[in-house]
Amino acid sequence: MSTFELERDVDRSHMQVSDRVAIEIRNMNKWYGQFHVLRDIDLTVYEGERIVICGPSGSGKSTLIRCINRLEEHQAGGIVVDGIELSSDLKNVDKVRSEVGMVFQHFNLFPHLTVLDNLTLAPIWVRKTPRKEAEEIAMHYLEKVKIPEQALKYPGQLSGGQQQRVAIARSLCMKPRIMLFDEPTSALDPEMIKEVLDTMISLAEEGMTMLVVTHEMGFAEQVANRVIFMDAGQIVEQNAPSEFFNNPQSDRTKLFLSQIL
């Protein structure tokens, strides 16, 4: 694991946690066949929260955030995102997905489209934004992730870090209220990790609600307002980062932290 050090102070003026609920997960369970991956998950996420989820591999942390936009189905309990209950009703699912942005470990950009087309695709086809306006929005976010000059290239011509920043911009173009990050830096070189984390920090500074699965404990310490530790499909411990790192309560957390720090 890399130790990420931020050179600048994080601007906390817009990082405010409101008391409006963004995501409500109640007693949620999920099985893969016979295997019980998620067990009795209860989690309430308020608007403006920046939550880092960590844990050993196979602990269900990716599965948990993939349930939030129903890339995975849960079999028991309930998930309410932005007031919409996730069920087998596809209309609700599509509505939630257009409100929740997701960034993947392997970027998952569309290789047959230019960067600009990657960014405008969902606004044009899902939100029915006129092309011209969608392109303006796309360029705005490309500038934000600091690669406007790459707009007409194909994803295959970009470095991993640039691709991941395009992927973040692609999600932002849908103006999501919540962003999910599934190990966004795990497939990147150390130098590129930094540029992606920088982008994520500036996103957090604007007050975005974020759920981040990551092993970047530096990021968690500086940006998160809550750290969740998962093991064997359950939430073992959650706390503010200072408490979590300096004063872990459960033995499992202590063991995990001693191994990665």
Partner: peptide, 9 residues
């Protein structure tokens, strides 16, 4: 997954 996550039907 990326197509799904963007809300495309």
């Amino acid at each position: 997954e990326a197509a799904d996550a963007l809300g495309l039907d």
